[in-house]
Design a protein around this nucleic acid. Sequence first.
RNA 1: UGGGGGAUCGUCCAACGGUAGGACUACGGACUCUGACUCCGUCAAUCCAGGUUCGAAUCCUGGUUCCCCAGCCA
Length: 562
Amino acid sequence: MRDIESKPSNFIRHIIDEDLKNNKNGGRVATRFPPEPNGYLHIGHAKSILLNFGLAEDYNGTCNLRFDDTNPHKENIEFVEAIKNDVAWLGCDWGDQVYFSSDYFDALYDFAVQLIKKEKAYICDLNAEEMRAYRGTLTEAGKDSPYRERTVEENLDLFARMKAGEFEDGSKVLRAKIDMASPNINMRDPTLYRIRHGVVHHQTGAAWCLYPMYDFTHCISDALEGITHSVCTLEFEDHRPLYNWFLDTLETENHPQQIEFSRLNLEHTITSKRKLTELVDNGHVEGWDDPRMPTIAGLRRRGCTPAALREFCQRIGVTKSENVVEMAVLEGCIRDDLNKNAPRRMAVLHPLKIVITNYPEDQFEELEAANHPQDESFGMRKLPFGRELYIDQEDFKEVPPKKYKRLIPGGEVRLRNAYVIRCDEVIKDAHDNVIELHCTYDADTHGKNPEGRKVKGVIHWVSAKHAIEAEVRLYDRLFNHPTPDNSKDGKTYIDHLNPQSLLTLTHCYLEPTLIDATPGEQFQFEREGYYSLDPMHQANNKPIYNRTVTLRDTWAKIEKRR
RNA sequence: UGGGGGAUCGUCCAACGGUAGGACUACGGACUCUGACUCCGUCAAUCCAGGUUCGAAUCCUGGUUCCCCAGCCA
């Protein structure tokens, strides 16, 4: 069991502590994570997953992974597999069984029959439009359905024939018989079963033409699995009376407690499955695992780690208040983790060639470099150094701004892990663009400071002859607006898409040790940020690196203020 | 003139009648062969109005404001 003290508490843990003190549920804690397999999981689901599995882990309980698969029209097996993959990647262990609501279709049918026998459910022939009209409004009570008083026998017969496939889609539904005048609209005789012919369910195939609704299915599934604390998001708060009504009316053995918390909102992104689906289906992104997507698959491909996501979910906490978390929190968690765990490499993103004129042609030497400045266990690597190198265009300025401490004409700079060089000559093309620099190096500055002068700047480099060419993809926020799906400016989230969310650099140069990088491996490209080797793709035989997150950049901040 | 929830630094989260605290951000400084990391410091909040109390973010009363609900979606 994990040290509970190490995790910040929250109101749900307070409730469980209290339940445990009162020996409720015999001291048992059982949670579940119940995704619908109609899309990929996003960072908001990560919050829920880590909450539910975290509670189980810390209270020595269990957490079931249960697919809430009652709407075969929208669900498929690809999503089931993707979800399992993501939950496992987060480090959550669902044991040896994956649950499906569809496992309970028989049991659910029997419970429905039981409800009919108790005169608590009836078959209704109203069509969808009529039913809406009968439901009333937020401020007016609804009217009883004309079919509300059918006899038990008739209802039983009709329900059996619905199951047998005698009726068309939409012609009949099974409804609970509760109260059409309830101020809670969920209690106005909610639908329990609808007819769906001709869809193949990914688990049950064509066995059913009758599918149960969420409200009926969820509470019973929880009860059958012996769930003690059924944690869900705030929008289900109004459904709790209905959740309890079913379990009370059916007198199930267990009566789990539904507890609601507020869902995660992240600035500059969206966490609506419906809208994420639209981004994918309409080609606004390359797929569910596009590194700009807030999906778990996208974050993973971007180079985010499970540890960073776990830390993130701890930092944001669990409450019932509406919240919009700043992207800086996520970025901070990723940086903290990768700073500690990503080996350092050098990569030149915007190459500028330099020639060390006093370094012999065709001569090379190997310089040792630490893989991590604070952690010796990362070991050392050898970097080839020669007469021709690439540095970044940003690290040279003909006319330097104030406080600039990189390379300038006639000035000196330290090449990271190598020598101090001086810029002697600037070579330009016909359009006055700097295309090459001629420099000289001080052979006595490897591993030590130069005599009698201070060199402030340190820049990264790669050997031109040995460098690996790569494509590097720089990602920025997917949306310009902090709350794109709720911007209150009359625009939709699509209008707020950031056209510059992806910047592809096709001619970058990496230090040669990166030839051994494995797909998905994370590195810090020194002075640039954290990057990871794209696990899916290559570009014309060149590796693709995705920028996970930049380094904190106080210089950029100063520049921006200027 | 329905029902259900929520309001604490810019952001997120604590404090559960007894000094409003932490994290992130921002700002300043130290260090530095990464303008990174690390370290030090600074700014910064109880929705409003009454009441109870020696004492209120917390309890009471009345407001304000924001979110959710009228699928045969979950």
